[in-house]
Computed example of a mutant assay.
Amino acid sequence: MSLATRRIWVTRPAGQAAVLSALLQEAGAEVFALPLLEIHPPENAQPLQAALAQLASYDLAIAVSPSAISAVLAALPAGWPATLPLAVVGPGSLRSAQAAGIHNLVYPETSFDSEGLLAIPRMNAVAGQRILLLRGNGGRDLLPDTLRARGASVEVVQAYRREPPQLTPGQLLLELQRGCDAMLVTSSEAAQHLFRLGGAAARQSLQSQLYCVPHARIAEALQAEGAGQILLSATGDAAMVATLQQHFA
């Protein structure tokens, strides 16, 4: 119960925070859910439908997040084709794919990001292959640009849309007054939304909070907003909880 009396904020999208929240509660924490990203269908679903209708023509598909996997599976009544390899980036996406019964998986053993995925041998042998990249709106172009440079034909399709939450600065300030011992932030975009939503009224309070993040890029996004207390954790829910436990111990 090493997190007893601690009020921990979990900022993952609704539907993706259950495992992390349960681990925190098992450690004694009071969990406050503040989703900093809302997941919606793409504004134009036709490109996704067209890509899924011709899945058999691809040599490899890549899903960059659990949201991408959920969106695709919802549009595939027959499930994922067993013969098509699916590449995923992080442990959350890997769990989502395995839970959906997808076993033909390509994923990095360490370095759970685009760089880590691109470093594995399978992603270096893509010349002449047709690849489907499933992601949300925006995002980095490192994956498609690198794979194209390696000789692949890459089709980027928006499977879902990320939007900031409907939250006022007053609501955020009220929750900050109720208490925040640490905030778990798992994407750079979420970090940016947090400070934009808080506005000038909440900025100083947000800068003084303790943050726990699983990647250096997220830490850099928070530092750019003026946050000074950042714990860099290994990737994965258990690792983030352990990092908090070690800090508060």
Rank of each mutant, 00 (worst) to 15 (best):
A242D: 14
V10T: 13
S187I: 08
V10P: 11
P121N: 07
F248E: 11
S205I: 09
P121D: 11
Q171R: 10
A78Y: 08
L167H: 04
I69Q: 04
A61C: 12
A61D: 04
I218S: 04
R12G: 06
A56K: 14
A238F: 03
A4Y: 06
G228K: 11
I69R: 01
L73C: 11
H103D: 15
P41Q: 09
Q16P: 04
I218V: 15
L76K: 07
R7V: 07
G101K: 07
L134T: 08
Q209D: 04
L132W: 01
D141N: 12
G170R: 10
G138I: 15
A149E: 14
G199C: 11
R196C: 06
V31S: 08
V64S: 09
P165V: 12
L132P: 05
L105A: 13
A29G: 11
L143C: 04
A201E: 14
W80S: 09
S93R: 00
L117N: 03
W80C: 09
S188Q: 05
G138C: 08
L52S: 05
T235M: 12
R203P: 02
E30K: 10
M123K: 03
W80T: 06
R12D: 08
V31N: 08
A216D: 12
A219H: 00
C212N: 13
I39D: 05
A50H: 03
Q49F: 08
V31F: 00
S67N: 15
A97D: 13
G15F: 02
L118F: 01
P42Y: 06
Y58Q: 04
G179A: 08
L210G: 05
L231W: 01
A87M: 10
L84N: 06
L20K: 07
S96G: 13
G79R: 13
A202C: 15
L84V: 02
S57T: 15
E43A: 15
H40T: 12
E220H: 08
M1E: 09
D113T: 09
D181M: 05
Q98N: 11
A159T: 07
E175C: 11
A27I: 04
S188V: 03
T11F: 07
L232D: 01
P91G: 09
S93Y: 00
A68R: 00
A71T: 10
L206F: 07
V126A: 07
L206R: 11
T11M: 04
A119Q: 10
R178A: 09
